[in-house]
Structures are given as C-alpha cells and as structure tokens.
C-alpha cells in the first residue's frame, strides 16, 4: 500500500489487467507515442500521461496509436470487443464524442440487446471531463449525463485514486461497454491505493462522510466541493452526509434514498448540466420514491445553462463552489 495519484492508479490498473488478460488492448491518440512513431518505452502516454510506459511492457501490438479520428477509434473498439478482445479506448476529451455517437450509442450499446444476448461488448472508453483547465467551451464539458441516459452503457466517474483503480479494473472485466470519465483536475490527487489488484462493483455508492442533517449527492470532482462544504458546515453544527455514487449507470438508488429518509433534505452538486443533467435525475428519483421523507425543497447546484466560458473569472464563476453549497444548505435549514 502506498500513496498514488489517480494518474498512477489508472496506469497500474491498466498494466495489471493487461498482465492478467492477454485480450486487453489499448488504443487511442498518442497512447504509444504518436501515430507512426516507434513506440519507445518513454512514450508520451496519451495526452494526459495515463498510459505512459505501458507500450514498453506490452508492445505495440497491444498499445495502438490511432489516427486523429474519434469515430474510427470507437468503431474499432466496438468491433474488437465483438470479436472477443477487451479494448480500452482513450478519447482525450468527452467533448469530441459528438462525432462517434453512432459507434457508441447505436452500435456498442445495442449489440447485446439486438443480438439477443448472443454477443458481448467488453469495451471501455476512457475520457476526460470537467471545467477549470482554461481549455474553453469545446474541451471542458462534463457530458456523463448524456451517456447515462442511453441504455446499454455503464457510466463510471471516480473521485479518488482508490476508486479509480478498482473501478477501472471492474470496467475492463465487465462484459458491457463502459464509459469511464476522468476529471482533468483530479489526476494528481493522491491517496492510499493497494498495490494488489481489486475491483469495486458498479452500482455501489461510497458514503464519503456520514451525517444526519442534510444529504449531498455529488459526482466526480464535485465530491471534493461537497466535502469542503461539509467541513465548513460541521464547524457551524450542521452535520452533512456526502454520497458519491461512483457510477451513474447503474445507480445505487438505495443508498441515496436511505440517506434522504434519514436527513429529510437533499442537495445535489453536479457539474454535468443545469437542464436534464444528473442533478435533475437524482431529484426526480427522490421526489418519486421518498417524497414523504422530504422536509424542504431539493436543491440542485449545477453550472448555469451556458457553454463553459474561456474567460478565467467567468469559468471560475461557472463551476459550483463549496461556498455556494454552504449558502444553499444554511438557507435550506434555517
């Protein structure tokens, strides 16, 4: 056991699964050092360095650089999965998924259903999400809510390095297409991560912090915003329970509902979207199934309904903050 960053934890998960199972391959842009390159050991490791060094261990047959063609990456991964490989495709920004919706939404997500369960599609798509990197409107979105709404896809968004490793291993071993969302601002966040392999089951929320006065459900980096708010509020005598669902599909509804039954108040902190996002989805779930437990309105803390601004002050104002969460909860409990 040692402290590892999310980047290191993901790299270790990939190496351990590739060592365990010869069917696991990686493909994407620059994952091996650039298309047409020799793929040396100190390869570039993808735009965010997650696959660094993997080609040195497993060779160019299993770590494949692709052309800059998102639809080709996803189509190749879906086809490879249908033939029995376990591809882990990397797409550097979720924002670019628009050009490969057919491969993901209409092909990979549908294979098992349309072939009557006679085929499996064990592919993983790793991609990055999140504002705060000054990368402007086309490289900063958090589109996990769109994938969550498509049946046949599993959606995973770790908030810490322990979860990142265990969830990626589970994703690779899963027989369905899994979209794995990595927040760009969390890559260097470290915590204790076992050196051994382990898998965290999907659909099991992590109760990050126990509390009795109000429930916060938060995703990916927003878990840390929620925790910061919970610490501030604890000093004021307000006890906050913070739930990190870890996967939005499948979703651990029970943990969320149990918590709201206990606290009576729900705040959802979600960077995905102000409209039709995960916050709205969780709010709908709780209104439908735990209405009698609610003692106040459900608060959705999301960015405004606008593209992510490039202006740094505006981008900072766009992302939900711990201050906003605290203010909302103080008002709610008054």
């Amino acid at each position: 056991m040692s402290k590892k960053t999310i980047r290191e934890a993901l790299n270790e998960a990939l190496r351990q699964e590739m060592a365990r199972d010869g069917q696991v391959i990686i493909l994407g842009e620059d994952v091996a050092g650039g298309h047409g390159g020799t793929g040396v050991i100190d390869a570039y490791g993808g735009p965010l360095g997650v696959t660094k060094g993997v080609i040195g261990e497993f060779g160019a047959n299993r770590v494949i650089d692709t052309p800059i063609s998102e639809s080709a990456i996803m189509g190749a991964a879906a086809g490879a999965a249908a033939t029995g490989l376990r591809p882990v495709a990397e797409l550097m920004f979720v924002d670019f998924m628009g050009v490969c919706f057919d491969q993901i939404f209409n092909q990979a997500a549908k294979f098992r259903y349309m072939f009557g369960g006679k085929t499996k599609t064990p592919m993983v798509v790793r991609t990055t999400i999140g504002a705060g990197m000054r990368t402007a409107a086309q490289h900063s979105q958090c589109l996990y809510h769109m994938f969550t709404s498509v049946p046949g896809l599993k959606c995973v968004m770790p908030s810490n390095a322990y979860d990142a490793k265990g969830l990626l291993i589970e994703a690779i071993r899963d027989d369905d297409p899994v979209i794995f969302f990595e927040n760009k601002l969390l890559y260097d966040l470290a915590c204790d991560v076992p050196d051994e392999s382990y898998a965290i089951p999907f659909g099991e929320a992590n109760v990050v912090r126990e509390g009795g006065d109000v429930t916060i459900v938060a995703f990916s980096r927003m878990v840390h915003i929620a925790e910061e708010a919970a610490k501030t509020l604890a000093a004021e005598g307000i006890s906050v329970e913070v739930i990190d669902p870890r996967t939005t599909s499948p979703l651990d509804e029970e943990t969320i509902l149990d918590s709201v039954e206990k606290t009576g108040f729900l705040v959802v902190v979600d960077e995905s979207a102000a409209r039709c996002g995960m916050a709205a989805d969780i709010a709908g779930l709780v209104v439908e199934q735990a209405f009698d437990a609610l003692r106040g309105p459900i608060i959705q803390i999301t960015p405004p309904h606008t593209p992510v601004p490039f202006s740094p002050p505006l981008e900072d104002a766009f992302i939900p903050t711990a201050g906003a969460v605290c203010d909302a909860i103080r008002k709610l409990l008054k």
Partner: peptide, 16 residues
C-alpha cells in the same frame, strides 16, 4: 465504525 467497515470491504475486494 464506518472506517472499519470500509477497511474490511477494501480487503475483501482484493483479487484472490
């Protein structure tokens, strides 16, 4: 405690 449960779960998740 929550931590005790978490520690045991983390152990149980390890391969093998």
């Amino acid at each position: 405690t929550r931590e005790l449960v978490d520690d045991v779960l983390k152990y149980k998740r390890l391969d093998g």
